[in-house]
Amino acid sequence: MKRIVTLTVAMLYCLCSFAQFSDSTHYLIKYASTGSINHTQDGNSYLLNNNFGFKVSKRKVSLNAGASYIYGKQNTSLTNNDVSAAVDFNLYTDTAKIYYWGLANYDRSYSLKINSRFQGGLGIGYDLIRLPNAVLNVTDGLLFENSNLFLHDTIQDIYSTVRNSFRLQYKWTIRNIVVLEGGNYFQQSLTHGDDYIIRCVNSMSVKLRSWLSVTASLTYNKLNRTERENLLVNYGVTLEKFF
């Protein structure tokens, strides 16, 4: 919890500093609440997924901060109690399609058996497509990771590693109504060949207003070191304000 508070304070400090860059700075606030509920005579289950994002951008620099909380139960058994907080930046070069990125992320996950995990690193990105209604890019870089995990539910595993982090990201807006977007990651340890992370977050939103959308999302996580994975299919609403 101390790490979450520290990372949140760092986010707010960076955001306040960045907001003073120039009059051309733009802001985006985004909140999504999705979930699922199942009630039958044989039992009950539910899952709630809350995500908050804040973005500050200008012509050559952008800064993103985000946090998520997932909680779920099946009958009386806990299935998800997952928290994540991250801050990242993109620095664009005079070569329009190339940019540099940096990332700091902290998370813990009941479903993936992560007691705590910190990742921080740098890398490079390339825009394959950048149009007003369509973006497709790839990024690659190195991440330092410090983790506290549970192996086979009972064996505590505290270790550090360096990972290569590859990401494919896209966003496609159709007639300013339908938005398809996602980020898909593969993070391989450079020191352990059987230690890798897969994370895929993809969603479709239909705008009802400029600030309100109905959203369906699919999230998949696999952490090979703990031999755990989860698949979340949610639906709900997204609120966003650009100014």
Rank of each mutant, 00 (worst) to 15 (best):
A85T: 12
A85K: 14
A85N: 11
A86Y: 15
D88Q: 10
D88S: 13
D88Y: 11
F89A: 13
N90S: 10
N90A: 13
N90K: 10
Y92T: 06
T95Q: 14
A96R: 12
K97W: 13
Y100E: 03
Y100L: 10
Y100W: 03
W101P: 07
W101F: 12
L103E: 12
L103W: 15
A104D: 06
N105H: 14
N105W: 14
Y106F: 09
D107G: 06
R108E: 05
Y110F: 12
Y110R: 01
S111K: 05
S111A: 14
K113H: 13
I114M: 02
I114P: 01
N115K: 15
R117T: 05
F118Q: 08
F118G: 01
Q119N: 10
Q119W: 10
G120E: 03
G121W: 07
L122F: 12
G123K: 05
I124W: 00
I124N: 08
I124E: 09
L128T: 00
R130I: 11
R130A: 12
R130N: 15
L131A: 09
P132T: 04
P132C: 05
P132L: 06
P132R: 02
P132V: 04
N133F: 06
V135W: 08
L136S: 01
L136A: 04
N137Q: 07
V138I: 11
T139F: 00
T139A: 06
G141V: 02
G141W: 01
L143M: 08
L143H: 03
F144T: 03
F144R: 10
F144G: 02
N146H: 12
S147N: 07
L149A: 01
F150H: 13
L151N: 04
L151V: 07
H152E: 13
H152G: 10
H152Y: 13
D153W: 08
D153R: 03
T154E: 08
T154A: 08
T154F: 13
Q156M: 08
Q156N: 12
D157R: 05
I158E: 13
Y159T: 11
Y159N: 15
T161P: 01
T161I: 07
R163P: 00
R163K: 08
N164G: 08
N164Y: 03
N164S: 12
S165D: 10
S165N: 13
L168E: 03
L168N: 05
L168Y: 04
Q169P: 06
Q169G: 15
Q169M: 12
Y170I: 05
K171T: 12
K171E: 14
W172P: 04
T173F: 00
T173R: 09
T173S: 14
I174P: 04
I174T: 06
N176C: 04
I177C: 12
I177T: 14
I177F: 05
I177N: 08
V178Y: 02
L180R: 01
L180H: 00
G182R: 00
G183H: 03
N184S: 07
Y185M: 04
Y185S: 08
Y185A: 07
L190H: 00
L190G: 00
T191S: 13
H192R: 14
G193R: 15
